[in-house]
Nucleic acid binder design. Structure first.
Lengths: 193, 193
DNA sequence: GTCTATAATACGATAGAC
DNA sequence: GTCTATCGTATTATAGAC
């Protein structure tokens, strides 16, 4: 882990990374169950067996996709725990949560979470995400919250999700990604007010 | 179709209906892809082949599950088209939509739609539902709506869904079904105000 | 690090007996 | 209306050559 040890991260052809990237695209597009390792391999011009050199199982591919997001969420949750509760904190939590969903490939990841909840049900990554969503929901919900307020907290998170990837039921939102994000944050903050 | 023609509806052991019921429960619980015909058959103490006597394909089972809801939605959409647009109509649309989701087994169906969007992607039933959600969203969105208002309309529908089956991300809402429904309608109407 | 080949298993769907 | 038996095809995963 010294500063000069660049070699380990400088794999000339980062097959492992390409597998992760393609897998995430396919998982988000068509779901985990309906995406086969053969399909992932084919897109990269390699074979299934080659994929198994880089990952022990299909689920391991999925698990590594969540690592970054989960770490970011844990950081956010821990930070929020040290702050003074109140409407202002809730607004800041939502802003930081949206930042986690912005940039990188977190948009595909959150689309996968939002649209493929069923497939995540029995997977370790699913349990991991459910825990974090639960923690976030609690942080966004005053202790004496009504049922409607609890529901609003959950919807605030969904609003940010829908702003991150557009799609979802019915027609897509017609707007640029920036417009969507801005609108989503506005709606989410209003819901968690 | 005469009044006395009861026989056809009075099948002593309604296997077809039982298949539909069990299938819906399993689809809602674990998703369409992960539910096999063998599993459905086993729960009823029959074989896969027997299931194929009642339905030509697995997808046909799913399709019949949506028939009632789709018919109700079409009726609602048509009715709404004859009314004067405005905040008041939007509130009434949401109320009637919630009624469609209440009673019967529509709760399992809408849970399946909400949590299993990925599996519905390439299915005829999925396209059918997406059309209706799109129509509903448009009815709930003023013509000059901002992006935020468009998003709020979609969230209003999601609010009713979450009120219909509790579950979803993070912790379940702690409330009776009635409390959940009441809160969901309040939140939904506020979103579509 | 990638390959061919294959094991083991499950799936949706069909044929034909009863 | 339900059964047994099976077909054809996919899947995840592994063994072993190169």
């Amino acid at each position: 882990m010294t500063a000069g040890d660049v070699r380990t991260d400088e794999r000339r052809t980062d097959t492992r990374g390409q597998i992760r990237q393609v897998a995430l695209e396919l998982f988000a597009e068509q779901g985990y169950d309906k995406t086969s390792l053969r399909e992932i391999a084919e897109r990269l011009g390699i074979t299934k067996a080659a994929v198994y050199y880089h990952f022990k199982t299909k689920e391991e591919i999925l698990a590594t996709l969540f690592d970054e997001l989960v770490a970011g969420l844990d950081e956010l949750i821990e930070w929020a725990g040290t702050q003074d509760p109140g409407p202002d904190l809730r607004a800041r939590i939502l802003g930081r949560y949206q930042e986690l969903l912005t940039g990188g490939s977190a948009d595909n990841l959150i689309r996968f979470v939002q649209e493929g909840q069923a497939s995540l049900k029995d997977l370790a990554a699913g349990a991991q995400m459910r825990e974090r969503f639960g923690a976030l929901s609690r942080l966004l919900t005053p202790p004496d919250a009504t049922v409607a307020e609890q529901l609003r907290s959950r919807l605030a998170l969904v609003a940010l999700h829908m702003g991150a990837f557009a799609g979802s039921h019915g027609d897509p939102l017609v707007a640029t990604p920036e417009e969507r994000r801005t609108a989503a944050l506005e709606v989410a903050r209003d819901l968690a007010r």
